[in-house]
Simulated assay, not measured.
Amino acid sequence: MKLRIFTEPQQGANYDTLLTVAKTAEQLEFDAFFRSDHYLAMGDSDGLPGPTDAWITLAGLARDTERIRLGTLVTAATFRLPGPLAIQVAQVDQMSGGRVELGLGSGWFAEEHAAYGIPFPADKFARLAEQLAIITGLWSTKLGDTFDFDGKYYRLVDSPALPKPVQDPIPVVIGGTGATRTPALAAEYATEFNMPFASAEDSARQFERVRAAARARGRRPEDLVYSNALVACVGANDADVARRAEAIGRDVAELKANGLAGSPAEVVDKIGAYAAAGTSRIYLQILDLHDLAHLELIASEVRSQL
């Protein structure tokens, strides 16, 4: 079981804060540092000092870290055109020496689109499918060849398909709860399928749908990584858990029901249930980015037991 750190900077974090968390995660030997890709705070947060762009952030981290893998969970296909996004991700992969992963989704938060003038079309899923075809097609085109695409939403003509990433291929993460289209899209394009904020039981059912879709496409289901994203709130004792829950505005009982919360022993047991469901990677959603002791506790008392 691999543990990754997953942050939500739209709730209020500048680059220096994210760099501190990423470097701490690297020093503690977590598997990766990921961030969401949002432009508007959610819930009661005022979002100060304001949003940071996911791929500008990752470009900075590519140069300011050395070993830890970097990625998005997930970039919204509505935010960027597929050609420029393929260039951005390939460039950050080069800047990091081959440590980047692209999580890509259709986009869902209508309010942030309205707030920053981003179109929010009704046919987002169909656009996502074309974006995945274009991005992976550009990266896989051989040097010296050109790439063409004639879709309903996007058209590329004689693209030189440059630059090339270091990794071949860059890992692509696709996730979601849809019963039919999402597993099919993951089976066609994904390196990893992620189930966000779901129980072990629901995850097991969705993983099996993805496996079935992979088999239908002639892929080996075991070639995909199956992962979960879950909020983390771990404490050495009940008082620590309560303090950390209060700091992020959540109820302890709710966190224990829906996330990875409680003592290290409780969290290890719950991770075991996800492992039994087929999970081999967990993204720990860390909502208090200033509580670095939380990461240290998870590394020393949770990850060490996995």
Score class of each variant (00 low, 15 high):
A32L: 07
Q91W: 11
P84S: 07
E26P: 00
K23F: 05
T24F: 09
G60H: 08
E26G: 07
W108R: 10
G98M: 08
P51W: 05
L70Y: 07
F33A: 06
A54K: 00
A59M: 12
S36T: 13
H38W: 06
D37V: 03
Q94V: 13
A77N: 15
L61T: 03
R67T: 10
P49A: 08
G43V: 07
R80Q: 12
G60S: 11
R63F: 12
D93W: 00
P51L: 00
M95C: 14
V74R: 00
Y39T: 00
T52P: 00
S96N: 11
F34L: 13
A77V: 03
A41L: 02
D37A: 06
V100I: 15
I87G: 05
L61G: 07
G105A: 15
F34T: 02
D46I: 02
G43L: 08
G105S: 10
Y39F: 15
L61Q: 06
I56R: 00
D46P: 00
W108V: 09
R99P: 09
L81M: 12
I87R: 03
Q27H: 09
D53L: 13
D44M: 11
F79I: 11
A25N: 08
L48P: 00
T75V: 08
D37N: 06
A62I: 05
V100M: 15
G60V: 07
T24P: 03
V92A: 14
A22E: 04
S106M: 15
L48E: 14
V89D: 02
A62N: 04
S96C: 10
V89M: 09
A77F: 03
A25E: 03
R69L: 13
D64N: 14
T57C: 00
G107Y: 09
D31H: 13
G60N: 06
L85R: 02
S96W: 12
T65G: 06
F79L: 14
T52R: 05
L81D: 12
H38A: 06
D46H: 06
Q27A: 15
A59K: 04
Q91S: 15
G107N: 11
G43M: 01
R63Y: 12
G71Y: 07
V100N: 05
K23Y: 06
D37G: 02
V92P: 02
F109R: 04
G43I: 05
V100F: 14
L28R: 07
V100P: 00
R69P: 01
T78H: 11
Q88F: 06
V89Q: 03
S36I: 05
Q27D: 15
P82L: 04
G107Q: 09
G43N: 01
R99C: 13
E26F: 10
H38S: 02
R63A: 15
Q91M: 14
E101Y: 02
F109Q: 11
W108Q: 07
